[in-house]
Design a binder for these strands. Sequence first.
DNA 1: ATAAAAAAAGAGATTCTTGTCTTAAACTCG
DNA 2: CGAGTTTAAGACAAGAATCTCTTTTTTTAT
Lengths: 154, 154
Amino acid sequence: MLSNACKYAIRSILYLAINSSEDNKIGVKIIAEELETPQPFLAKLLQQLTRDKLVSSTKGPNGGFYLDSKNRKNAIWDVIISIDGTSKFDNCFLGLAKCDDRNPCPVHFIVSPFKDKILSSFRDKTIDEYVVEIKNTNRVISLKDLDLFENEDS
Amino acid sequence: MLSNACKYAIRSILYLAINSSEDNKIGVKIIAEELETPQPFLAKLLQQLTRDKLVSSTKGPNGGFYLDSKNRKNAIWDVIISIDGTSKFDNCFLGLAKCDDRNPCPVHFIVSPFKDKILSSFRDKTIDEYVVEIKNTNRVISLKDLDLFENEDS
DNA sequence: ATAAAAAAAGAGATTCTTGTCTTAAACTCG
DNA sequence: CGAGTTTAAGACAAGAATCTCTTTTTTTAT
Ligand code: FES
Ligand code: FES
């Protein structure tokens, strides 16, 4: 559904939302290590996001990427638009030319409610709100955070 | 989620399930036209499906592809395994290394129920059963069938 | 000023997916 | 048998996605 590029970008934005500030800019190197993504490739993506004003950056020593308060008012959806475009969300799951309720493919009514949900999750919440939700519910973003509950079987 | 190749393959199987029989084999050319897919590419896919005994074929005049009663007992899931493999269904939507309920990414609990549904739709029904469902509910398979209800606004 | 640090930019390499082309093999029918 | 038809197979080509490398520009700190 999403390209690798877009997945990296979303995870970067969330990472920056949680860990960065104007006083604490983070370099590509760190971000790439934390998210375990290819470094120069991620750099390209961050450049793209910066061009589209979804993240902020400064050069030089103590420079790096961060989110200012304006950036935090955007939605994940804006990241998807910037990197992947929206076509993958509009297209039919089985590749038919059109996807709508009146000419549904065999899985349309399974796929369609899911699309709506994920869409509203990405589009109707600001990054800020997203982060609050992530913190409240202990969601994982980077890879290194995995297996948080390794030894606490429920 | 699914590759083009896999979408073509699924649509072909469904097309053959509805339109072919041992007495009515269908050539690649016709199938490719009906589904509006690149012909030689589809031929490759049908060869692959034939190797995996998901479709049947005979060469020569009046030859072509068809589904025998054994083929019809398979599931769409078998097509996906044959063409794409299952990894796309196992992987995390945001590209994290593992996808499970204990280390959920921010969208895990949105994506996960959908995966279960689509999976059971593909895995727990035979092609035969799928076709019955398609016929009962007027689902669209090829592109040419689109806009069936053009002038019957509900 | 100068040196170091970091992003920006652009060219290039690799791999994967998609798609094409050509030849071989098998089958049918006259 | 022999001509025609259709799948099978394999090599090949184009394109996109992914990833890398090098150079330039900007900023900070000394
Ligand atoms: S028509 Fe196929 S997903 Fe909507
Ligand atoms: S952990 Fe991301 S979808 Fe399950």
